[in-house]
Simulated scan of single mutants.
Amino acid sequence: MSEKTFATPIHLKLSSKRQTVIRTVWEALELLRQWPGRRGREYRAALQRCLDALDGLTSVSRASRCFAAAARESGLLLA
């Protein structure tokens, strides 16, 4: 599988002591499957868009935007 890299890495704060940087669709999908935050509308959209991006059905940039929106909705996105 080829790497589908985000144009801009997404920085997240998962807990008071743990931060991570998501750089690819695959990394985003792995984190979404163990999501520590709220699994609301934005989360569901991000999960679907990341799966779609891996299958070539949507762009990597759209998956990235949806993932960042899910992180923002959950309060995990670092500014």
Rank of each mutant, 00 (worst) to 15 (best):
V60M: 08
Q48L: 15
Q19W: 00
A53T: 02
Q34L: 12
G56R: 04
P36G: 09
L32Y: 09
K17W: 03
L51M: 08
S59L: 13
R33H: 07
V60F: 06
D55T: 00
K17D: 08
Y43S: 05
L57G: 07
L32G: 11
V25R: 04
R41Y: 14
L32H: 12
A46E: 14
S59A: 14
T20N: 04
E27Q: 12
R23Q: 12
Q34S: 10
T20Y: 02
T24L: 12
T58Y: 08
L57S: 11
R38T: 13
P36E: 04
K17R: 10
T24C: 09
D52G: 00
S61N: 03
R23V: 02
R39C: 05
R49Q: 10
W35F: 09
G56N: 05
Q19V: 00
C50A: 13
T24E: 11
V21Y: 05
L31A: 15
K17L: 06
G37V: 08
A45Q: 10
I22R: 06
D55H: 01
V21E: 13
G56I: 03
R49W: 02
P36W: 05
A53I: 02
Y43R: 06
R39E: 07
S59M: 13
S59T: 15
G56K: 05
D55L: 07
V21S: 14
E27W: 00
Q34D: 09
E27L: 02
D52F: 00
R38L: 14
C50W: 07
L31R: 11
L47W: 14
A45K: 14
L47V: 02
R23Y: 02
E42V: 03
